[in-house]
């Protein structure tokens, strides 16, 4: 894996409006263009040092393990990846993402390339919990749903949905890191009428 500095040099020189990130200063601010953006932030504390947690996230192809919604992530270069998320009606929503900030064991920030169907950007931050009791992991996600009035309403609705999804992702991530597996009951013994539905 390239060093972070070489990564930084690879960052395209045309960041979209509003992206600012400075190492060692305040948390990077990522703003999705337009005023209808949805922003969610969720946090979880994991009883592990930042290093293995960061390492899991930095290999983006690990993420479908913890994202409950079906998603395919293809890493194309140290900073480029392609995301395909299944959507209602056998569709999928796809975009290319760029890692725009990468501070090992501390922070990863990304945004979608311009002209993506759903403009989005986010950060995951790893900070020591008080008393050295593990690591606080905070994910902030911003995105612009397709425009128009309906879009704004959808944004409001899906804002809650996105919050739940990020929350669920962090819950699964924490379980995988601390317990070594994600709890499940799928496929367990069950009586009718559920049994009938399962078969």
């Amino acid at each position: 894996m390239p060093t972070p500095n070489s990564l930084k040099r690879n960052i395209p020189s045309h960041p979209p409006t509003g992206i600012a990130s400075r190492k060692g200063l305040a948390p990077s601010k990522i703003v999705v263009t337009g005023d209808k953006g949805v922003k969610v932030s969720r946090s979880v504390t994991v009883q592990k040092p930042a290093r293995p947690l960061y390492a899991f996230w930095r290999n983006l192809e690990n993420l479908p393990q913890v994202i409950k919604h079906p998603v395919t992530i293809t890493v194309r270069s140290p900073i480029e990846s392609h995301w395909s998320v299944s959507a209602p009606g056998d569709r999928s929503v796809e975009w290319d993402a760029l890692i725009i900030n990468d501070e090992p064991d501390r922070l990863i920030a990304w945004r979608s390339r311009e002209a993506s169907e759903i403009a989005n950007a986010g950060t995951v931050r790893f900070e020591p919990a008080p008393g050295d009791e593990g690591t606080e992991v905070t994910v902030t996600l911003e995105y612009n749903p397709p425009g128009g009035k309906a879009g704004a309403a959808l944004a409001k609705l899906s804002g809650e949905e996105a919050g739940q999804q990020v929350g669920e992702m962090l819950r699964r991530f924490k379980a995988l890191m601390e317990a070594g597996e994600i709890p499940t009951t799928e496929g367990q013994s069950v009586g009718a009428p559920q049994r009938k539905n399962q078969q």
């Binding site: 504390t45 009883q47 009791e133 929350g167 669920e168 819950r171 924490k174 601390e178 317990a179």
Partner: peptide, 23 residues
């Protein structure tokens, strides 16, 4: 789970990681 903050403090019924329907 045995691996979370609460399990490590013997607060087993407060385990963070075993409920698939935590939400």
């Amino acid at each position: 789970c045995g691996g979370c903050h609460h399990c490590s403090r013997q607060e087993w019924s407060c385990c963070d990681n075993t409920n698939p329907n935590g939400a």
